[in-house]
Nucleic acid binder design. Structure first.
Length: 201
DNA sequence: CAGTAGATACACT
DNA sequence: GTGTATCTACTGG
């Protein structure tokens, strides 16, 4: 059930971003387990991607995590208050990553309600990268964690999505990436209310 | 509804 | 010092 090491070594980050839709992301913190179905992702294709922190092969203490072998998490802080969760993929020194932008709550919903301080009826409880990470209790202490461990992992529960259910659009919030800002590297489940910007198709 | 401001802390120059 | 892969609340229709 748990995705194996081999899965994360796939060099085709764009296909992987699409494939992660419908997979289930688990976290276990202080014996409290929460999980959500991944309903929105974005692909970041390494050193050629102007929107990536690793563009041009740049290495800093922060981006070092992305150069690790696939199968670890890359969590980083944006706008001073949001923890964004990424899955590092591909071989070592190839800094590909998939940003998890939204989940649909599945396990431990009461815990998520408490973390987010809002009822499950509000889609905003896990819609958008900052919110989804917070609902799952992910913060920067999860950076560089092994996704095959027992604190955070991803399972395949054979939730099948037909081709028509998957929408593709340009990525969000990266206007500075110039021509790369228009590449269709954002994937989401059509009509799912937890997707952050459903109107933009 | 839509549009906008403010919050917030860290990495990097 | 500056910019950031954002969210939320608040305003006014």
């Amino acid at each position: 059930m748990k995705l194996n090491q081999e899965y994360y070594l796939n060099e085709d980050v764009i296909n992987l971003a699409k494939d992660l839709l419908g997979k289930v992301l688990y976290t276990k913190i202080n014996d409290e387990t929460t999980a959500g179905i991944i309903v929105e992702t974005e692909a970041y294709f390494g050193i050629q991607d102007k929107a990536s922190h690793a563009y041009g092969g740049k290495r800093t203490p922060r981006t070092e995590t992305m150069y690790a072998q696939g199968g670890v998490s890359y969590v980083y802080l944006c706008y001073g208050m949001h923890n964004l969760f990424n899955v590092v993929t591909s071989a070592k020194d190839n800094p590909n990553a998939v940003l998890i932008r939204a989940i649909e709550p599945l396990v431990g919903i009461e815990i998520m309600e408490e973390r987010r301080n809002m009822p499950r009826s509000k889609a905003a409880i896990s819609s958008g990268p900052g919110s989804a990470a917070k609902a799952l209790g992910i913060d920067r202490t999860f950076n560089a964690k092994d996704l095959l461990g027992d604190e955070i992992w991803i399972e395949d529960q054979h939730i099948s999505l037909s081709h028509e259910q998957i929408a593709t659009t340009p990525r969000v919030g990266i206007a500075y990436a110039q021509e790369h800002a228009l590449l269709p590297l954002r994937f989401f489940v059509k009509g799912n209310k937890y997707v952050s910007k459903p109107n933009k198709v």
